[in-house]
């Protein structure tokens, strides 16, 4: 960075106020595509194609480490079954998988069209008045009892 930036960015008092202000401004202004600069810094890595694989293996390794560590850590448990090594890991994994997989049949059983009750709603009135208007996929709603 210092290569491109000329050294005469000090203000008259010799401090870097101007540069700091510019940095702040840059961090505040979204790019042309509407991407916030902070987003790039904080979450830019997720856009990497391999990040998915990286996360998967990272979590897998961390899981193994935690389970192995369980062997060496003394635990004080009130519930008998919890003394088993990796019990929490197993229970967490199974619970999560069960909940998610139950989503399939439950969705089939319980999910209905959005206007099932006749009032699909819409955003409340106090949303951003400057919200970019985009052609809504749903089109206009027809309420029960409306004319035509």
């Amino acid at each position: 960075m210092s290569d491109e930036t000329p050294n005469d960015t000090r203000d008259s008092n010799g401090r870097f106020v101007k540069r700091a202000a510019e940095t702040a401004h840059r961090l505040h202004t979204p790019s042309e595509e509407g991407v916030h600069p902070v987003a790039k810094i904080l979450f830019g890595w997720t856009e990497n194609k391999r990040s998915g694989t990286f996360i998967f293996w990272g979590v897998a390794v961390l899981s193994m480490v935690l389970i192995v560590a369980d062997l060496g850590v003394p635990r004080h448990e009130y519930v008998e079954i919890a003394h088993a090594t990796g019990f929490y890991a197993l229970w967490g994994f199974c619970s999560f998988a069960f909940v998610v997989l139950m989503g399939w049949p439950l969705a089939r059983l319980l999910r209905r069209k959005e206007d099932y009750y006749g009032d699909p709603g819409g955003p409340p009135v106090d949303i951003d008045p400057d919200m970019p208007v985009e052609p809504s996929a749903e089109g206009t709603y027809h309420y029960e009892g409306d004319e035509d």
Partner: peptide
């Protein structure tokens, strides 16, 4: 440790699924 086991393995389930 146990709390992390619960959470991390659950996250692992998410990632896997």
């Amino acid at each position: 440790l146990t709390q992390m086991q619960l959470l991390v393995l659950a996250i692992f389930a998410f990632v896997m699924l």
